[in-house]
């Protein structure tokens, strides 16, 4: 059951990611990206990471997609999109690179092992691991958590400075 569901959500994620790239209309691409985010959230649920799934939907599918849509509106991409797409050479190069990466991941089990070794210790408190995440976040990873606030502060100032009028 779990295996089948993984392939279902994973398949939906990959297909909508490909659709996102191939769609000419940027708003359609944005919609495909929402589908990718939601299916990733479902994959997180499958892993037992409910908190991460909720964050994925609230932050990515919610806030970040709103920003993307505003940026699409801001740039008014439509006229450009109609006239020029991805060039044939670029398309071929991208698909080659993508296939290569896929092969590398499938064949090179070493890469997967290396990624596993890099991952921090598993957080798998049985019902609802929000508590386990919280305990790690506020004890062991306290400094990164506090530094995040400075990062967010930089984001606030940066957004205002970039978008503000030049004097």
């Amino acid at each position: 059951m779990e295996q089948q569901l993984f392939w279902l959500w994973g398949g939906i994620a990959v297909i909508s990611a490909v659709m996102m790239i191939l769609k000419r209309n940027p708003v359609h691409s944005a919609l495909c990206l929402v589908v990718v985010f939601v299916s990733l959230a479902l994959l997180y649920v499958l892993l037992g990471a409910e908190f991460l799934a909720a964050v994925q939907v609230i932050v990515y599918a919610g806030a970040i997609m709103v920003l993307f849509l505003f940026v699409i509106m801001l740039l008014n991409l439509e006229t450009e999109v109609r006239s020029q797409g991805l060039s044939r050479v670029a398309f071929k190069a991208c698909s080659l690179a993508g296939t290569g990466l896929l092969l590398l991941l499938l064949l090179g089990g070493g890469a997967v092992k290396a990624l596993r070794a890099m991952a921090p210790e598993q957080v798998s408190g049985v019902p609802g691991n929000t508590q386990a995440v919280a305990e790690l976040l506020f004890t062991k990873y306290l400094l990164p958590f506090e530094v995040t606030s400075i990062l967010l502060l930089a984001a606030i100032v940066g957004a205002l400075v970039l978008a503000g009028k030049r004097d």
């Binding site: 505003f70 929000t130 976040l137 967010l152 606030i156 957004a159």
Partner: peptide, 23 residues
Amino acid sequence: YIIAMLFIVFDIEAMFLYPWAVI
């Protein structure tokens, strides 16, 4: 765009409050 950007920042701040509230 500015409003969306600020929304993201404070959204992330709120997300950190959830695990904090749990423990």
